[in-house]
């Protein structure tokens, strides 16, 4: 077993550089503002960062599977919105404004099922009807942005829900969903890099003809990954809601770009589930750092800090050039004859 396919040396270096830069940044900031680092990095901070990273991680893992197999699902944001709303709606249907913990778990399950079904239809459009992946993905975002608040308005008379229930935290104040996500990331890594199915996913995105001539149905592989990506994004939305405890449908909804950040996360993590999770954690921590800065009185715009992931991806794509987009992303596969 080699380490090369886990994290390439270059990738390790990149992660190292990023962490190094952040460390230096932190040190400089604490120097400038004369803040004790231990006041910034508290246990609450770590807990909240992990919670913040979880929905992004889930969507990112799903998205990278789809893209690895040659289908760019940029509808992650839309499916997250659907997942979040479905969870809230189900909770409310089961237990009104005070659902039980059992209701919460059932609601999450329902959200995953619903987003799986919707993604299945989306996958048919993309694969069977060769829909334009970019435009159809944007459409999913629009549809989510429209119908979720619409449905919320129907149910609650407002685009946002009243306070429902958030999931109970376990020991150390940590959400069980965080642990579940860690397990899922591990499983996703094993499946992608250690099972035959994972080999097929990789081959489908790089050289579908090679997979086809090896006797594996390329479209079936892609259906599976696309549906998985939607299910994971829906799950991510559900987790977001289960942590927050209420649905917000105003503006860009409570999902607020996390689906896009998920894409950034897996690009940054070079299509590796563990890398994507690490990137998501980095972005989650960045987000939470803003809150910490405020509490200790450092004035840095949260908005600017939150742009760092996007800028980082541009740099990685253009200059560093190490993120390798699968060769045939976006192309429907046509068998010969």
């Amino acid at each position: 077993m080699s380490v090369t396919d886990v994290l390439t040396v270059a990738r390790l270096r990149l992660v190292g550089i990023t962490i190094g830069v952040l460390a230096v940044l932190g040190a400089v900031l604490s120097g400038i503002f004369d803040v004790d680092l231990s006041r910034l990095i508290t246990r609450g901070f770590v807990t909240r960062s992990l919670e913040m990273a979880t929905p992004i991680t889930l969507a990112a893992v799903g998205g990278l599977y789809a893209e690895k197999s040659g289908v760019f699902n940029i509808g992650l944001e839309g499916f997250m919105i659907v997942g979040a709303f479905t969870t809230a709606g189900t909770m409310f249907a089961l237990g009104g404004t005070s659902p039980t913990q059992g209701d919460v778990w059932v609601a999450i399950l329902v959200a995953v099922v619903v987003s799986t079904l919707l993604t299945a239809a989306f996958a048919v459009l993309l694969i069977r009807y060769k829909a334009d992946q970019i435009v159809a993905g944007l459409a999913v975002w629009f549809v989510g942005l429209g119908f979720a608040p619409f449905a919320a308005a129907l149910v609650w008379g407002s685009r946002s829900s009243p306070g429902l229930t958030s999931i109970d935290r376990l020991a150390f104040g940590q959400s069980p969903l965080v642990f579940l996500t860690v397990v899922l990331v591990g499983v996703a890594w094993v499946v992608l890099f250690r099972t035959r199915y994972g080999y097929w996913v990789q081959a489908a995105g790089e050289n579908p003809e090679a997979l086809d001539t090896a006797g594996v149905d390329v479209d079936r592989v892609r259906y599976a990954t696309v549906i998985f990506s939607g299910a994971m994004a829906g799950f991510g939305g559900a987790v977001l809601l289960a942590h927050a405890g209420n649905f917000v449908g105003t503006g860009s909804t409570m999902v607020d770009g996390r689906g896009w950040i998920a894409i950034v996360a897996y690009l940054f993590g070079n299509y590796n589930p563990v890398g994507a999770a690490a990137a998501a954690l980095l972005f989650g921590a960045l987000d939470m750092l803003n809150v910490q800065f405020q509490t200790v009185g450092i004035e840095i715009s949260a908005r600017l800090v939150n742009l760092l992931p996007y800028v980082a991806v541009l740099v990685v794509l253009t200059v560093y050039g190490k993120t390798r987009i699968p060769a045939v992303v976006g192309e429907p596969y046509e068998t010969e004859e």
């Binding site: 080699s2 090369t4 396919d5 099972t195 035959r196 080999y199 097929w200 990789q202 081959a203 790089e206 050289n207 003809e209 090679a210 997979l211 001539t213 090896a214 006797g215 594996v216 390798r324 060769a327």
Partner: peptide, 20 residues
């Protein structure tokens, strides 16, 4: 060649016929 470039030699040889 019907080979998947970023995958290893071993993975390419067994693609579609992987022992598990």
């Amino acid at each position: 060649f019907q080979l998947v470039k970023p995958m290893t030699v071993l993975q390419n040889v067994i693609l579609g016929h992987e022992p598990t």
